[in-house]
Design a protein around this nucleic acid. Structure first.
Lengths: 111, 111
DNA sequence: TTGACATACCTATTTGTTTGAGGCATCCTC
DNA sequence: GAGGATGCCTCAAACAAATAGGTATGTCAA
């Protein structure tokens, strides 16, 4: 976790997943589609990225899950935990700092 | 290069290096320090990241280099090429799209 | 009813980037 | 002359994400 750089980019999937779950419980497949849609088709994280991410988050107690059967389909719904909400705060701050830092360098006119 | 996602994050060092070189020629060690300073200590890319990046950029003809002796020190100064300037435009656009996309999802209030 | 496609879950392998640690040499300061 | 900053470099490892695979059910149309 504590690296030289806040895991700016690698942490993006984690950030987006936590953010989505902060609004309502969702299941994996739904999250994959939501990231595509909600970012205006800019970002696409495959299932091979999101599912392991969810498992990792659950292991770290940042999300919890429950099975739910919907129209003959078995879905794994994930909810944000209190710790997850705290983690989201952190990542959010990190992301803002990173974009601010890059923005600083990019707009810097001097020399 | 052409991945599902524009190489948002992995491409950050490349973006910053090209941007710095678009202002004036610089040498490796200087770039490493400049990234730290100009991002307000937010980002730190080690020499093990920046030097290979420079070599890669040179190989791809996005930058060129020349030796220069300054105060008994031999420095490798890099300049942006025309192609490098074009590449910078691309990465800049990509970065803006990515941050816009993430921003979209993060600020999205619905559902 | 069969075939295609979307839904829904999962994991293993590969690819790629960055970190961390090292090595080398010169210069300056104490 | 020792330590630290400067200046270059590379390799091994850690890690994240992409790719590609696997399973199963539902729906729709031919």
């Amino acid at each position: 976790m504590s690296r030289t750089n806040p895991n700016f980019l690698n942490g993006v999937p984690e950030l987006l997943v936590l953010k989505l779950l902060s609004r309502r419980e969702m299941y994996g497949y739904e999250i994959v589609k939501a990231i595509e849609e909600d970012t205006g088709e800019t970002l696409t994280f495959g299932e091979g990225c999101i599912y392991p991410c969810l498992h990792f988050l659950e292991e770290k107690k940042l999300v919890s899950s429950r099975r739910k059967d919907v129209r003959g389909r078995s879905r794994n719904y994930y909810q944000l935990t209190r710790r997850g909400a705290e983690r989201l705060e952190e990542l959010n701050t990190d992301w803002d700092r990173v974009t601010a830092g890059i923005s600083l360098l990019m707009r810097n006119k001097h020399a």
